[in-house]
Design a protein around this nucleic acid. Structure first.
Lengths: 237, 237
DNA sequence: TAGTGGTCTAGACCACGTC
DNA sequence: ACGTGGTCTAGACCACTAC
């Protein structure tokens, strides 16, 4: 570790993280055990402490290490299992699968937000949002049914947009950057409307994605997306 | 930034990230637009370039910025939507909800891995794994049905463990650290066995979690977890 | 080929929380 | 109280790639 091959650039912090990970996986450093402090590792690896710090923070983010001031760094006893999902843009996903994307707007109108939804996103009952329902297709096969409420106050010019010619999701992504997003997965049996719009039997198990975005003035949009049967959401990597 | 208030420690990198985020959300810096380079921002914010770099990397990880050498940093056109889920340890989750955790092992025996599963995790067809099926309860209500295959070669001493008295998940977490994990969500209608074990009607939509862990020698364990109806997996935060 | 981000270093100060 | 991690700085060299 005294030098780096030219042309073989592997950030030193990642090399260190890899070596520490190897020692943990190889049981060289046992769960709950304290590992050498940053200064010691810096000497061992011939690196600056900042570099070691970066490496160990990586592993702490992965959940493999628990770090506390004064108490030192310990191998996590119950490694947190974190999973990162990239929420796909439906059009890109369909096109990447070699299919032709299209979408159809079922309805677009101003309408009072239903009480349960209003409560969930923290707006007064009876507030009018833009209610949009649309189906996304790949080669004429229905992929997703989207039921969306958009806060008209969150984005100027929203009333003038006609989402029949403009994917709501993409328009919002481009025109209403958000500060915070909530996402939740669940499973539901297809109700009559889901079944009709996705061309599937009623009762079919569907993966449901609920997603709400916020900026500093309040909620921007909340959406329930019903995915076609067989849809799998998997970790990126 | 000549001084920092004592007791009011907000890492400078995060302050910078917050300000840049504000400018993006406030449309001050438009999507696709190039923002000042690190050196300029360092001067503006009175910080070292490394600090600005850290802040901008944070935002790039969030998907808000696209960074390229020589080309500079631009506001992302299609902000990637990433979601981080913490896969809960079922016992902790149940106990946190104030219920009493228990679990029952339905079966534990060596058995050849079914072909589709073997193919999915990349082991030769017919290999014998330990096949474990268990139900997790909270206050006698069934929460999850777990159908797991464990590679006996991956962990020494595995054959001697009796999972009737030892939660398999937790034992593995503590005794078989992994290098890589795949996780996938989907939805399935409850089959007869799911229905019987979870005490629900057949056909009920269930959130299904597939999870496989690996170390450098191959797969450690793969599991299908069927969650009780109404289970919601949501982002941490 | 030159501008920009990626990364490292050596040193420093500080906050936190265990001892 | 003091050891440990958290963070910042100023400077440096390098890799990538748009120009």
């Amino acid at each position: 570790m005294t030098d780096r091959q030219p042309g073989l650039t592997s950030p030193k912090a990642q090399l260190i993280a890899g070596e520490v990970r190897r020692r943990i996986v190889g049981r060289e450093w046992q769960q709950g055990e304290r590992i050498p402090d940053e200064a010691e590792l810096a000497v061992e690896f011939g690196a600056a402490r900042a570099t070691v710090n970066k490496a160990l923070q990586l592993l702490a983010d992965e959940g493999l290490l628990d770090r506390k001031r004064r108490a030192g760094t310990r191998v996590a006893v119950n490694p947190a299992r974190k999973a990162v999902f990239t929420i796909p843009i439906i059009r890109e996903q369909i096109e990447r699968a070699g299919m032709e994307y299209s979408h159809r707007v079922i309805a677009q109108r101003r309408s009072p937000v239903p009480d349960p939804t209003a409560a969930r996103i923290g707006v007064p009952a009876g507030r009018e949002f833009i209610h949009l329902r649309a189906v996304h297709y790949g080669d004429d096969r229905a992929f997703q049914f989207e039921d969306r409420w958009i806060n008209p106050d969150s984005v100027p010019g929203l009333d003038k947009v006609d989402f029949r010619h403009q994917n709501a999701n993409e328009w919002l992504v481009r025109n209403a950057p958000y500060l915070r997003a909530d996402i939740a997965f669940s499973a539901e049996n297809a109700d009559a409307r889901d079944a009709r719009l996705l061309h599937i039997p009623k009762g079919q198990a569907l993966l449901i994605l609920h997603r709400t975005t916020w900026n500093d003035t309040g909620p921007i949009t909340t959406v329930r997306i019903a995915c076609h049967p067989g849809y799998v959401m998997s970790t990126t990597n």
